[in-house]
Each structure stands twice: as structure tokens, then as C-alpha cells.
């Protein structure tokens, strides 16, 4: 086991169950994520990966079990976490530019009546935009950007609040494949200073970047180093899969029932 003290776990789920209208999605899920981890949640569609992330960020309340994020309840930890949603193509016509969208990420740290924006907030937005190579697009409307650029805007929005954990739901779902490698390179760099938990569909890029993998399908079937075996993946996906060299990447090639 890594980490002896309780505080070393940034995310702790203890026997968490969740169901939508009586349909159970997660059952007795326990998972502990150490500080500085780069964890990938993999598993089939409908397996509960997104639900798991939503429970961690406080969007959903578990029906049973306990959730601890940074040693507190998820909604108390809000200003210390970053969240990148799955769908980055939503509301493309919305009248807002890149700067203003990223600026909303600063609101997490504000309390009170009128959450006024300080010069420090603006400076931090500018810095993060430069870091994400978005500075030249700061006055562009959000809908005018490409899928990959918009994905970077959402990451910038999550990072501008200076989170300790970054949760990402399918970050590569709506971007072109050429951006995927770039994105994972970026995440690897970010991982030097923060914990990252990412939901992913495709495992082709994972092995070389992530530190650990959790297979989610109703429960957590496997949680550990990203060296997955055919047996484990077969168990999670309920179908025979073929492992291709370099560990994790898998293609569903064998006979499919």
C-alpha cells in the first residue's frame, strides 16, 4: 500500500453505491487515490465511470457509502478541485469569449454576494491562457474554436482555480486523434504538480502516461498499475479482447458475443 497516513489519500470512496431510478450503476465501490497519482478509469459504456467522477466532484450524492475528497465532503472541497466535463461541444452559439469562459473558473474561490473579479483573477487567467497556448484566442468566441482548442479552454477553466485534483471525463471524446497525444503529454506535465483522475474509453494512449488504472463496471474490478492482463480486461468488458504489445492497448478483435 502506498501512503501510510490518512491524509495521503486525496480521494477515498468507501463502499459507494449509486442507482438511477432503481437501476444500479455502482455497487460497493471502494477506491483510494494517493496524492500525485495519474489514474485512468476505464471500462465499458454504462459501466459507471462518469457516475463515479460525478460523485467525486459532488454533482451526484451516493445512495450508500462515504466519499472523501481531500479529507472532506465533495461539496466542501469544491474550490480545491478542477473538473473538465465530457461534452465540450455544448452551447456553441453562446455569446462568450475564451477569456470570460476561463474566468468563470475563478468563481469557485469566491464567496459572498457579488463575486467581483479582481486584477489578480485577470492576471491568473492571462497566465493560464499563455500556458495553454490560447492567449491569442482570448477574444475569440468559444464557438469559433476547433474541438481541440475548446478542450484546452475547458482545461484552462479547470486549472485557473488552482486545483489540487483534476477530474476529466473523456477528454478525448470530442477531439481529433492528433490532439490526443498532445493532450496526454500536457496532462503528464500537469501531473508533476497535481493529482489527475481521467475517465477514458480508449486505452491506446494510457500505458505510457498514466500511473495507475481502475477498471469500472458496476464495481471496481481492478485497481493498480497500468499493466493490464488479457484476463482482467476480459473480465471488465465481458468479451474476449486482444492485447497488443506494450501492455495496455487493446482492440476488440476476437469473436464477439
Amino acid at each position: 500500500m502506498r501512503g501510510e497516513k490518512l491524509t495521503d489519500w486525496v480521494v477515498e470512496l468507501m463502499e459507494v453505491s449509486f442507482s438511477y431510478d432503481g437501476h444500479e450503476v455502482l455497487r460497493d465501490v471502494s477506491i483510494k487515490v494517493p496524492k500525485g497519482d495519474f489514474l485512468a478509469l476505464i471500462g465499458p459504456n454504462g459501466g459507471g465511470k462518469t457516475t463515479l467522477i460525478k460523485i467525486c466532484v459532488g454533482l451526484l450524492k451516493p445512495k450508500k457509502g462515504a466519499v472523501n475528497v481531500l479529507g472532506m465532503e465533495p461539496d466542501k472541497a469544491r474550490y480545491r478541485i478542477g473538473y473538465v466535463p465530457q461534452d465540450t461541444n455544448r452551447n456553441k452559439d453562446f455569446p462568450a469569449n475564451v477569456f470570460d469562459i476561463v474566468l468563470t473558473g475563478r468563481l469557485a474561490r469566491k464567496r459572498g454576494f457579488r463575486r467581483s473579479i479582481s486584477n489578480e483573477d485577470r492576471l491568473r487567467v492571462e497566465n493560464i491562457l499563455k500556458k495553454m497556448h490560447l492567449y491569442e484566442y482570448r477574444n475569440r468566441r468559444i464557438g469559433e474554436l476547433s474541438g481541440g482548442q475548446r478542450q484546452r479552454v475547458f482545461i484552462a477553466r479547470a486549472l485557473v482555480g488552482e486545483p489540487e485534483i483534476l477530474f476529466m471525463d473523456e477528454p478525448t471524446a470530442s477531439v481529433d486523434p492528433s490532439f490526443q497525444t498532445e493532450l496526454y503529454e500536457l496532462l503528464k506535465k500537469l501531473n508533476e504538480s497535481l493529482t489527475i483522475i481521467v475517465v477514458s474509453h480508449d486505452m491506446s494512449v494510457l500505458s505510457s502516461y498514466v500511473k495507475s488504472v481502475a477498471c469500472v463496471n458496476g464495481g471496481v474490478f481492478y485497481h493498480g498499475a497500468p499493466e493490464l492482463t488479457e484476463e482482467i480486461i476480459g473480465k471488465v468488458y465481458h468479451c474476449p479482447v486482444e492485447l497488443i504489445a506494450h501492455g495496455v492497448p487493446h482492440r476488440v478483435l476476437k469473436e464477439h458475443r
Binding site: R78, Y83, T104, G105, L107, I142
Partner: peptide
């Protein structure tokens, strides 16, 4: 713009 994200923060 993004109700879900607003809830998260």
C-alpha cells in the same frame, strides 16, 4: 453556459 460546471464550482 454550462450548468453542470457551475454546480461543481
Amino acid at each position: 453556459y454550462d450548468m453542470e460546471y457551475a454546480q461543481v464550482i
